[in-house]
Nucleic acid binder design. Structure first.
Length: 468
RNA sequence: GGCGACGUAGCCAAGUGGCAAGGCAGGGGUCUGCAAAACCCCCACCGCGGGUUCGAGUCCCGCCGUCGCCUCCA
């Protein structure tokens, strides 16, 4: 089976081939660090984490670069509003974002560059573009000459006329030759604006050039994958293509991958609507695995509408996956029931791979994981145990891990201290049940449940485990 | 207005030509002292109208509806 990936550039699925066999150069647009990260950022980060994990599962070495845009107008505004230093603001949000990535179980990208640390590369690219006639300086600003770029608009399928009809163009700067042109470099206009010396005086990079520069610096002129939210297709990625391909005379990326937007009750999260859910708030109330399962439940290119009911469904689905990992209760290690389980595990694995090979169809892949869950539970009910049972569970855990799901519940801080006492209570409850002292037995069960200890009875006796 | 996406059961959702995956919820059973978990059974003809085809959620046309981008945005 070969992997097929949807390419925004061609608007179709293409066989996935990399520039260098066995190596994937993947650049993903990260956040502009001017405010708390929200669950939309989380979704995008998870989507590309899963893509990366699957590529590694397929045997690729993935060079994964995710940037932080730490020089930006909004950061400057934020700094002014708070009366603080812009770099300090950005640093704080970068740290917060990295904590969130750990909480979400996201594999650390190979490199996490920042604009502020890539200034030399940016200036170099801008100089090259000027020398080539693709850009011009105007009173300390430098603009990209859009009409010089013959295939401008090929990613978003817009013409320059469309760009011209936008507000940005209508309120076009007098410094531009053409209203459609966009800034590569902005001259410093106030002393509190972060600025670096350049051939055009003190200033800072424009919005799009930083990604072009960071991508080239860490991954070279042509990427295998350039990713981000689909809200970045225009103008951000369109302009990146214009800059990079003009400057480097090479395709910027073989595959452009864009995730759909996360929405709340049918509308996009936005400041003006006041419906932003921060990652911090979400993760305080819900498990990271539940959020990941939620994201995995629909295709990454589709919009994902979220509400309390959907979150609850993901949480219960997560419990079902975990339930399959409970130990066997029987002792049968061979026979038709065992053979059926082995066959089910093999089938689940093959179908999982086929689904993921089809443009990372995580929803279908999950469906096959649930089929394996059912097979495991059935086998347990039939008394299956032994190495084949353990292997089926291991397969479930492994494939879930390819999606980044952890499934294992972290026990409370000091479980070992409490465990002997809980065992004692379980033992007492067993005695009570034998004596038909139902009220007392149930009291123990209910009180333990309230403390997060779940009890499950079976023919072989009761087991317990920590529940969240 | 331009570009684009989507519309499958109560909810989420997969499925791009051949008898509609999976999860959640719900109903009925098995097991259990009760409960939980698990297992079994039930629960959709795919927005509407045309067309192509032996055969269409699946292709084409039109319509209706929802959403995104075009300005900062994952």
């Amino acid at each position: 089976m070969t992997l097929r990936v949807y390419n925004t550039l061609s608007r179709q699925k293409e066989p996935f081939e990399t520039l260098t066999p066995g190596v994937v150069r993947m650049y993903v647009c990260g956040p502009t660090v001017y405010d708390d990260a929200h669950i939309g950022h989380g979704m995008s980060t998870l989507v590309f984490d899963v893509i990366r994990r699957y590529l590694e599962f397929k045997g690729y070495e993935v060079r994964h670069v995710m940037n932080f845009t730490d020089v930006d107008d909004k950061i400057i505004q934020r700094a002014r509003a708070l009366g603080r230093d812009a770099f300090a603001i950005a640093d704080g949000y970068v740290e917060q974002y990295q904590r969130h990535m750990i909480e979400l179980g996201v594999l650390p990208p190979t490199v996490l560059p920042r604009v502020s640390q890539t200034i030399a590369e940016i200036i170099d690219m801008v100089q090259t573009l000027i020398a080539q006639g693709y850009a011009y300086e105007s009173e300390g600003d430098v603009y990209f000459r859009v009409r010089q770029d013959e295939d401008y608009g090929k990613l978003s399928r817009r013409t320059i006329e469309h760009a011209l009809s936008s507000d940005r163009a209508r309120f076009g700067d007098d410094l531009k030759e053409d209203a459609a042109d966009f800034a590569l470099w902005k001259a410093q206009k106030a002393p509190d604006e972060p600025a670096w010396p350049s051939p055009w005086g003190l200033g800072r990079p424009g919005w799009h050039i930083e990604c072009s520069a960071m991508a080239r610096r860490y991954l070279g002129p042509t990427l295998d994958i350039h990713g981000g939210g689909n809200d970045l297709i225009f103008p951000h990625h369109e302009n990146e293509i214009a800059q990079s391909e003009s400057c480097n005379a090479a395709p910027m990326a073989r595959f452009w991958i864009h995730n759909g937007m996360l929405q709340l009750r049918g509308e996009k999260m936005s400041k003006s609507l006041g419906n932003i859910i921060s990652l911090h708030a979400f993760l305080a109330a819900h498990e990271a695995d539940a959020f990941r399962l939620l994201v995995l439940g629909s295709h990454y290119r589709k919009p994902l509408a979220i509400d309390d009911e959907i979150v609850g469904q993901a949480e219960r689905g997560l419990e079902r996956l975990r339930g399959a990992l409970r130990p066997p209760t029987g002792s049968q290690s061979s026979g038709p029931a065992v053979a059926a389980l082995v066959a089910a595990a093999d089938a689940a694995r093959a179908r999982f791979i086929a689904a993921m090979d089809d443009d990372f169809n995580t929803a279908a892949a999950l469906g096959h994981l649930y089929d394996l869950v059912k097979a495991i539970n059935t086998a347990r009910d039939e008394g299956v145990a032994g190495p084949d049972f353990a292997q089926a569970q291991a397969a479930l855990l492994h494939l879930s891990g390819v999606l980044g799901l952890r499934l294992v519940v972290d026990a409370p801080a000091a479980p070992s201290d409490a465990a002997p006492f809980i065992d004692l209570l379980i033992e007492i409850r067993r005695e009570l049940r034998q004596a038909r002292q139902w009220a007392l037995a149930d009291l123990i069960r209910d009180r333990l449940a309230a403390m997060g200890v779940g009890i499950e009875d079976s023919r072989e006796g009761a087991t317990w485990r920590w529940e969240r």
